[in-house]
């Protein structure tokens, strides 16, 4: 308790240094938090696309049932597929109606007859999509083959770039935060040098001298993390109704409350760690303890 009081006294006596540390920490965690959310979000998007049928092969209207079954067997026998599902004209209509349930005009115009039957195929490996596609296009009964290889690949590439960029930026900002704590604590030590010397001479243990500075570092980290987490949470909740329509069908919105709790908890822990590291480096550098 006495050590926490000492920490409070240190902060009270030079509040602007403390404010600078809080602001930099909050900015670091704000940017880091946004990157984490975007990274988690893009993962969900990729998972969604990966989980969907990767190839759709549409049949000509002339295709007979036995021809369709034979082709379904041929594809299954390649052992490259995880699922081969036949979608009849009626099934296609149901899917169409479900997707356009809010647009009665579109529903009126379409009947099962004008929709093609199809095979929805998923492979274990994205690299096998090409082979399956080659088999399908050679078939007389196939009208068109559509596969999402490009979509998934592009998304994966973008996510990779985002992750690398994010990790580099977060690493840079974390280093800046550690340095800020290091500098602020270093200044405090310089101001308190005489006091620390006296305390040592009258029997203060290393921990007694270190504790208020370490608590101060932790406080900067945790308060900065809490501010940024709360701001991110409020911003995301506020803008969710605007962003959600862009992700129709992808199970991202509404973001579960557990994600925000994880964000707050994780950032607070990271803040405490950064504060401790910054303070500890400063203590080693200036007090050799």
């Amino acid at each position: 308790m006495a050590k926490i009081k000492t920490t409070a006294r240190y902060i009270r006596r030079s509040p602007y240094q403390a404010l600078a540390a809080f602001v930099v920490m909050a900015a670091t965690f704000f940017i880091s938090g946004l990157f984490v959310l975007v990274a988690v979000g893009s993962n969900e998007v990729i998972k969604y696309f990966e989980a969907r049928p990767q190839i759709s092969a549409f049949f000509k209207d002339t295709a007979q049932n036995d021809q369709i079954l034979a082709l379904q067997k041929t594809i299954t026998d390649t052992n490259l597929t995880s699922e081969v599902k036949f979608i009849s004209k009626e099934d296609a209509l149901k899917i169409y109606q479900d997707q356009n349930k809010n647009d009665p005009l579109l529903l009126e115009l379409v009947t099962a007859n004008i929709l093609p039957a199809s095979l929805d195929i998923s492979t274990y490996n994205a690299t096998d999509l090409e082979k399956i596609s080659e088999i399908l296009v050679k078939e007389e009964i196939i009208d068109e083959v559509v596969y999402q290889k490009d979509v998934v690949e592009k998304l994966t590439n973008w996510t990779r770039i985002l992750r690398f960029g994010g990790v580099a930026l977060v690493a840079f900002l974390t280093t800046v935060s550690v340095l800020i704590v290091f500098m602020v604590i270093g200044m405090r030590i310089a101001i308190r040098r005489e006091e620390i010397k006296i305390m040592r001479l009258i029997g203060a243990s290393n921990w007694y001298i270190k504790a208020p500075f370490i608590f101060e570092g932790i406080l900067y980290g945790v308060v900065g993390a809490l501010i940024s987490s709360l701001v991110i949470t409020m911003l995301v909740l506020y803008f969710s109704p605007e962003i959600a329509p862009f992700f129709t069908g992808i199970p991202i919105f509404p973001i579960p409350i557990s994600v925000f709790l994880l964000l707050i908890g994780g950032q607070s822990l990271a803040g405490a760690l950064i504060g401790t590291i910054g303070a500890q480096i400063s203590l080693r550098r200036y007090l050799r303890i």
């Binding site: 040592r200 029997g203 290393n206």
Partner: peptide
């Protein structure tokens, strides 16, 4: 070094 504080607690200066 870590025990110096214990020594100093037994000495008034």
């Amino acid at each position: 070094r870590s025990k110096v504080s214990k020594l100093r607690r037994d000495i008034g200066m």
